[in-house]
Design a protein around this nucleic acid. Structure first.
Lengths: 232, 232
DNA sequence: CGTGCCATTGACCATTATCAAACGACGTGG
DNA sequence: CCACGTCGTTTGATAATGGTCAATGGCACG
């Protein structure tokens, strides 16, 4: 593994506070892999062998059951994933695949559990990470239960515009197909929903989104910090 | 607080492994309260002052946004709740109300965070608890995304029958209204869905559910351990 | 024995999925 | 350089799913 990759991992909040010796133990036991686009990294139902750290690229979490499939979330680097399954040593509940060529650091699950038992700072960081992800999941469930697909889309557009600096205009960072699945709808429905949002001033040309009346959009979307604000 | 209530708390996995002195610190700082049915114990958007431990009764977690409301889960004693908000010291994302007269132990959030920093066994237990709840939430989201309301109901009936010992017959443990909200549907829809399940051998008289053909029910419901099995 | 609240039922509407077809961007190979 | 195939996207028609509103019946509790 190159030193810069180890540094990326070390810089994550999850690994930042731990003792050097413990970090060396983790990173020494781990290794780095490069994957092309579309590779399934983990399969739901299997047992976790490694804690994964996404260093470059991006990963989509999805799940399939009884002939249906859904995207649960997208992950951007740098970020660790499947921590809950690793610490409990229980089956994966989601599958993960790369949506672009990606670089992943793999750390043996047993090494993670060993260091977790020895390093209080790491244990605290694991708690913070799990609690943070727990809360994101609560927000996802609320988003799904309390809103129509049109409202989820409208709020996603508002949130993404804020992330991009409130310019009122941005390019979709992912394919519409992937966005549709992420928002819990079919691509056909996303297409119609995007057209529908013209009524509140959202205009679409290809993958360019223009918000021409943010107030009208917000009046329709009714964003809620307890669902949409990543810092809450 | 009565000694027996403290013992109930102490017996929880979350508190079981910690040092006596630390448990005394927590329980000494805490106090016990009794609530009638229908009291809102916590309001989403507020800051957590206490870790709650449900000792008796039952609690419903719900959320409201933009004129809509949904039930996110039900909690049975003994069980701690709102742990994620407490350890991160961030706003509640859900509200909670009693659905029957309940007994709750309240432990000041700061005391929890103090002991968490000092007691590795407690820290490990917090991780296990958070990871467990995280996984339950993933299952909830999959259940919601991958199934229709009729399928969620069918699988709930199968799961509840298993919990009750696979007798093929049980009494609903909660009002249909509450069950409907828990399963993410309206009471009218639950009514129709229950009638619909007669086609696969489920018969309903008042709050009594009879499964007359478990195989037919399972063939329709297609239960998935990665969604329905509480031990996975 | 009222008075509410829960549950059911009917009619209707909103939302979303499904199926099908057509279009368009993009990359490959001739 | 262009023809072609692939895949993502859009659009249309239709069906499934679930919500809303309203009326009614039933049951518990005062």
């Amino acid at each position: 593994m190159r030193a810069t990759d180890a540094e990326i991992v070390r810089a994550l909040p999850l690994f930042g506070g731990m003792q050097d010796a413990h970090f060396e133990a983790l990173i020494g036991a781990g290794y780095l892999q490069r994957f092309p686009q579309g590779v399934v990294l983990i399969h739901e139902g299997e047992r976790p062998d490694f804690l994964h750290v996404l260093v470059q690229g991006s990963v989509e979490f999805f799940s399939e059951s009884a002939d249906r499939a859904t995207t649960l979330s997208l992950l951007k680097p740098p970020s660790a994933f499947i921590l809950a399954a690793v610490v409990l040593d229980q089956l994966y509940l989601k599958s993960a695949r790369t949506v672009e060529p990606s670089v992943v650091v793999l750390i043996p699950a047993q090494a993670v559990r060993d260091v977790f038992d020895k390093d209080p700072a790491f244990a605290r960081a694991v708690v913070a990470e799990l609690a943070f992800r727990y809360r994101n999941l609560v927000k996802d469930l609320k988003n799904q239960r309390l809103r129509t697909s049109l409202e989820r889309l409208a709020n996603w557009i508002i949130a993404h515009d804020e992330q991009m600096g409130r310019t009122g205009s941005f390019k979709l960072p992912i394919e519409k197909k992937v966005l549709a699945n992420l928002l819990g709808m079919r691509p056909e429905n996303l297409s119609r929903n995007l057209a529908e949002l013209a009524r509140v001033g959202v205009h679409v040309r290809g993958s360019i989104i223009d918000i021409r009346d943010i107030e009208a959009l917000k009046a329709f979307a009714r964003p809620d910090p307890l669902i949409d604000d990543p810092a809450v």
